[in-house]
Design a protein around this nucleic acid. Sequence first.
DNA 1: CGACTATGTAACGTTCGTTGTTACATATAG
DNA 2: CTATATGTAACAACGAACGTTACATAGTCG
Lengths: 138, 138
Amino acid sequence: MAVHVLAVLAYKEGDRVTSAFLAGSVNTNPVIIRRLLLSLQRAKLVDTCKGAGSGSRLSRSPGRINLAEVYRAVEEAEPFATPVRKPNTACPVGHCIRKELERIFGSAQKAMERDLGKTSLVDVINAVKASCASKKTV
Amino acid sequence: MAVHVLAVLAYKEGDRVTSAFLAGSVNTNPVIIRRLLLSLQRAKLVDTCKGAGSGSRLSRSPGRINLAEVYRAVEEAEPFATPVRKPNTACPVGHCIRKELERIFGSAQKAMERDLGKTSLVDVINAVKASCASKKTV
DNA sequence: CGACTATGTAACGTTCGTTGTTACATATAG
DNA sequence: CTATATGTAACAACGAACGTTACATAGTCG
């Protein structure tokens, strides 16, 4: 969803867009968008102003924003659903496996972010535009 | 959790282990374990027998099982929480962004699985053993 | 200044997936 | 046949994400 919002912002490059408009695009509620925008603001990805005729826009050019940043921006708000499974001290495996799993999954997550880092918002909107164009011709 | 269970099975290499025992190790309910084992059976990772004195064991040597397989085995049961956000046809971006996002995230997920594929169950239990040993000495 | 607009934020309900629990049928060993 | 352990269904409990309403606050423009 975060990517969707940013793609719309990129689409309207430079213009300030209201949360109500974005909500219409994502087909959801303005408050949901605003909560999301707060995360994106913290990550310095968007620039939001209050007041009449205001709204949000990208704080950098869309070519300078890659999806790994976006992912981190929204993930740090949701610190990974680790239900904090209480380690049962009785079993030798259960006792020590925790941090090993964290290490492995941390590595896997980094690999994923590396892959996301290859794609920028420009790539996304170009692909979207191309996809829309081809659909129209068909 | 799946990794935890398989690690215990690898720890008791060859022996059949009951779901009740595994539940004790993971600190949960035997039924949860059995549900998980069903996924692992489908993925041909474990070999389960019914009846008295039975239980589950790895169907291959732990060196031949990598974490990407485990991940897929448990993920295919949970086909990724894609809430099927209804595309709003009004917005040009909303209309076409769906499959583009799927493509990108599919790629990222594959990158993650590639990374998980580098680690086998043997690696996990070795690391756990080492971790336990160092803890004992300290 | 004063009205209008749009964000920031809290409170609450809804929905959904995961986990947990109980219960029971079934299969297998001895 | 009996004990044991899995397969499976049904339901409760919990938490996360989403949705909704309401209101305070800050900025713009006449």
